[in-house]
Design a protein around this nucleic acid. Structure first.
Ligand code: MN
Ligand code: MN
Ligand code: ZN
Ligand code: ZN
Lengths: 132, 132
DNA sequence: CAAGTAGTTTAGAACCATTTTAAAGTAAAA
DNA sequence: TTTTACTTTAAAATGGTTCTAAACTACTTG
């Protein structure tokens, strides 16, 4: 595999562990996974890796732009006295949320809903950063 | 306060603790907060409540429709081999995510961005539930 | 190649938000 | 009033993630 080279190009040392992970992840098929998912696949591939290393590698891969992490917006549970359906601005610096009325947003084009499912709600988050 | 009545109408027993929380939360001003935020405000109001009770009450309030919880989509960190900006379907039953290309979604109307900030990215999550 | 050094891996501990446990307390029902 | 179901609580448990610090390994320099 040229995953060794992919790692080098990304500015990462091609360690044994990183190559194992690159072989699993960087094969052209996109997927979502947790650290634990990945550790299991590493086991299945006949290797063994500490969970700390799995997290370390994922962080490096992410910072190098090889993968992304799905944004979560909230480390801790956030409650909201506004119990009407609405969207949010997210101040990326502070984590503060600001309500957006549903009628302030208009989604003109929606993707086809996967067969067998129905749209049960759309959430829009507009991230904010300071203007200069 | 008629918060005792509000609680009754919501099908909740108006305990001392629930009334303290209702007095803080259900005053007509909307806000976002964590369990810890609320516990602090309870202290400031001259009362004392265990964190377990704060969580218990928030869960009850939520199930009764008095407040909402901001959705987080992920209890655990989810990584994504698709490192191009994109949106997601969320299977609410399983937590599974499915990619949506950015060009599959068109936001025709956006709210005014708060003064001093710029839009640094929009995330759309379309929740899915089983059809029938 | 050495030898040095900077970066990496690891087991295990720590962290911390949230949930569970189980016992004591309280509100509503009978 | 007595009973029953529900609620509160301190403390322990849980579980994902990060930290610690020691062993290891990839790269650099001579
Ligand atoms: Mn932590
Ligand atoms: Mn947990
Ligand atoms: Zn809100
Ligand atoms: Zn994705």
């Amino acid at each position: 595999m040229d995953n060794k080279i992919k790692l080098r190009n990304a500015g990462l040392r091609p360690t044994k562990q990183r190559i194992i992970i690159a072989d699993i992840l960087l094969n052209g098929f996109n997927r979502h996974f947790t650290a634990e998912n990945l550790q299991n696949e590493i086991s299945i591939s006949g290797n063994k890796m500490s969970i700390a290393t799995v997290y370390n590698c994922l962080k490096k891969f992410k910072n190098a732009g090889l993968i992304k992490q799905v944004e979560s917006y909230t480390d801790t549970a956030i409650f909201d006295t506004n119990n009407v359906s609405h969207h949010h601005f997210l101040n990326e610096e502070t984590g503060e949320l600001i309500d957006i009325d549903n009628n302030e947003i208009n989604l003109i084009k929606l993707p086809d809903i996967p067969k067998g499912f129905i749209n049960s709600g759309v959430d829009v988050i507009i991230k904010l950063k300071k203007n200069n």
